[in-house]
Write a protein that binds this DNA or RNA. Structure first.
Lengths: 338, 338
DNA sequence: CTGAAAGCGCTTACAG
DNA sequence: CTGAAAGCGCTTACAG
C-alpha cells in the first residue's frame, strides 16, 4: 500500500503537503491538490487506520465476544449490532468465546492489545468463572452485557424483559384455560433464572400450585438429547396439559419427544418456546413462543456502547429492557376450556 | 492504557530498556527486568498491536465479509474459521455484506484502511455486481472465496463438491426406486448452478428424462414464501415422487406446503435438502439431506488464507473441495420399489 | 548492561 | 502556499 511519503516523492512535494491535500485542507494550491488526489487514486491509496488510533487514542473499533456463531439468537443480535456500527463507521473484532474459555486464554487482553474502544459481550452457554469477571472489571473501556448478567450488576445491560414476558406468556395460557402447567427450564444463565421467576410469578398470581414434579431443570439447552426427567414427566400419569420451555430449541425437542410417545400436539400436550427464532414458524405445528426482537436488542446494545464511548448520555448504569411479546401459534390450543 | 515510556518513568529507566525487559531480551540485569515486569503487571500494561503492524506491515488480522449472521450455514463456517484463526493468534474483523451493498459503501476500502492481511468472503445471497469484482481485483492481499464463485475463477476457493454431491444424492434416490424426480433450484449463486448440474448429470447417467415442468427455479431461497411454480407442481396430476431441493430451508418450506395440501411425506412425496443444518434433524419427519461439513469448509478456508499470507504452499491458484455426503432420513422412503 | 536515535505513517502547530 | 519538526508507541541497530 502506497504511503503519503511515496505520493509526495512522486509529486515532488513534502509529506505534509500531501496530507493537507488529501484531507481537503483549505490553504493548498488547487493544482497541487488535484495532482495529489490523482496520484492517490491511481495507486489506490488508503489511509492507515492504525495511525489515527495512535494519534487520537480512538480505534473506531469495538470487540464482540460471541459464544459461537451457530446460534440464531446471537446471529440476530449480531445483525442488529452490525447495522448500528456500520452507520457509525465503527468496525468490529469478533472473538469466539467458547474457544477462548477452552484454551484458557485471556479474552480481554486480546481486545486490549487491539485498543478496542469498547466491548459487547453476547450471551454465552454458561455463567463464566470468577476469574473472567475479574478480568472484566479491569478492562479500561466501556462494556455492555447483552441478554445476560455477570456476577454483579455493575455493567450496562441490554436484554429482554424475560421475567415479565414469561409471566405474560403463562398468564395467556391460563386465560386460554390451561391449568396443569409444567415447565422445562435452564438456569445456568441469567435469562433462564428470570424466565423461571416469571413462570412462578404467573402461577402464584393466578392461584395455581407450583408443582416441583412438573418443573424440570435441564443441564443443556442446545443439544438434541432431552433430559431423562423431562421424558419421565411426559410419560407420567399426571402429565401437564402444557409444557412451557426455556427456549425454542428446547420446545422443539420436547415436541418431538412427545410425538414419539404418541402424544398429539396441542390436543394431548401443548408446548411453548421462547425466542421466536425463524424455525419456530417453519415447523409443524407452528410453535407458540415469545418474540424477543433480538435485532433490536443488538441495535440498542450497540447504540448504548457507542454512547458510552463518546461520553454521551446518562452517567448512571443503564439497564435497557426490550419488551418481548407472546406469539400464539398452533402448538397451543386456542381454547382449552373443554 | 499505560505505555512503555510511562513504565520507564516509574522505574527510572529508558523506554528502550523497558522494551527489552518486557520482550525477554537477554542482556538485561535481572533486577531491572523483574522490576519492569512487576510495574507492567501492576498497571495492566498491554502492548499496542497497532505499533507492531506499523513496524512490520503485518496486522495479524483478517477481514471476513459475511452476508448476515442469521444463517446457520455461514455460522458453521464462521466457527471453523475462528477455530483456526485463534490457533494462529489471528484476530478478525467482520463486515456485514448485505448492509454494505445496500449502503453502496466500498467494502474493501474499509478493510484496506485497517490493513488486514487477507480476506475471507463468505457466501452471499446473490452474485455481486461487476463493480465489486473490480474492487476485489485491486485488493493487494490474498483473498479466499468460500462456497461461491465470483466472476472469474482466479481467486482461491474452498467449498463443497456441490455437483458431485448432488449427483450422488440423486443417484441414491434412483437406487431407492424413485423415478419421477422433480427439483427446486436457486441459481443466483454458484453453488445453485453446480447442484443443478449435478442433478442433471445423475438423471442423464441413469437414463431418466429431465422434465422442464418438474424442474422449478425459485427467486428466493431464504424466505418462507414458496414460489407459485412449486405449488403448481405439488398440485399437478403428474406430481413427482420426490422433490430435490437446493437447500434445507427450501426443503422445509416444500414439506410444509405439501402437507398443507394433504400429502404424506414420504409416502406421497419425498423431499430432500442440502446442508444438513441442525434443524434438518430436529423436524419431523427428519430431513434427508447432504452434509456439507460447513465447519471443515471454514477451517480449510482459514488455513489456506493463512498459508497465502505467510507465503507458504503452492503458488498456483488453489481450489479445495470438501466432500459432502448424503444423509438418508425419514423424508425419503427407504425403499420406493413398491 | 543501558540509552539515544531512527523509523513505521500520519497530523498538526509553527516557521518561512 | 509549502515544508521541517515533533509526536503517537514501539523495536532495533548502534554507541557507550
Amino acid at each position: 500500500m502506497i504511503s503519503m511519503k511515496e505520493i509526495g516523492k512522486i509529486c515532488g512535494i513534502s509529506e505534509s503537503t500531501v496530507s493537507k491535500a488529501l484531507s481537503g485542507y483549505a490553504g493548498i494550491k488547487p493544482a497541487t491538490r488535484d495532482r495529489v488526489q490523482e496520484v492517490a487514486r491511481k495507486y489506490g491509496y488508503q489511509p492507515n487506520a492504525m495511525v489515527k488510533c495512535m494519534q487520537t487514542g480512538v480505534s473506531q473499533s469495538i470487540g464482540i465476544a460471541c459464544n459461537h456463531f451457530q446460534d440464531l439468537f446471537s446471529g440476530a443480535i449480531m445483525d442488529g449490532v452490525q447495522e448500528v456500527l456500520h452507520q457509525a463507521h465503527y468496525d468490529s473484532y469478533v472473538i469466539s468465546w467458547d474457544k477462548l474459555v477452552r484454551s484458557g486464554e485471556n479474552l480481554l487482553n486480546r481486545f486490549s492489545r487491539r485498543r478496542v474502544d469498547g466491548l459487547l459481550l453476547l450471551p454465552m452457554a454458561q455463567v463464566p468463572t470468577a476469574s473472567y469477571t475479574t478480568q472484566l472489571y479491569s478492562f479500561p473501556n466501556p462494556v455492555v452485557l447483552v441478554d445476560q448478567f455477570w456476577g454483579s450488576r455493575e455493567f450496562d445491560y441490554v436484554g429482554s424483559n424475560n421475567r415479565e414476558a414469561m409471566k405474560e406468556l403463562v398468564g395467556t395460557l391460563i386465560m386460554l384455560g390451561y391449568r396443569k402447567i409444567g415447565a422445562v427450564f435452564y438456569s445456568k444463565v441469567s435469562s433462564g433464572v428470570e424466565r423461571r421467576a416469571g413462570f412462578i410469578d404467573a402461577m402464584i398470581a393466578h392461584g395455581l400450585p407450583v408443582n416441583a414434579d412438573s418443573l424440570c431443570e435441564v443441564e443443556h439447552c442446545d443439544s438434541c438429547e432431552l433430559d431423562e426427567k423431562v421424558l419421565r414427566l411426559l410419560k407420567s400419569e399426571d402429565r401437564p396439559d402444557v409444557l412451557v420451555c426455556f427456549n425454542d430449541n428446547l420446545a422443539v425437542n420436547v415436541m418431538n419427544a412427545a410425538r414419539d410417545l404418541g402424544l398429539r400436539i396441542p390436543e394431548d400436550l401443548a408446548v411453548t418456546g421462547f425466542g421466536n427464532l425463524p424455525f419456530s414458524d417453519m415447523i409443524r405445528p407452528r410453535l407458540t413462543t415469545v418474540d424477543q426482537q433480538a435485532e433490536e436488542i443488538g441495535r440498542q446494545a450497540a447504540r448504548l456502547l457507542l454512547d458510552r464511548i463518546s461520553g454521551k448520555g446518562d452517567i448512571k448504569r443503564q439497564e435497557i429492557l426490550i419488551p418481548a411479546r407472546t406469539i400464539l401459534r398452533q402448538s397451543s390450543a386456542s381454547d382449552q376450556n373443554k
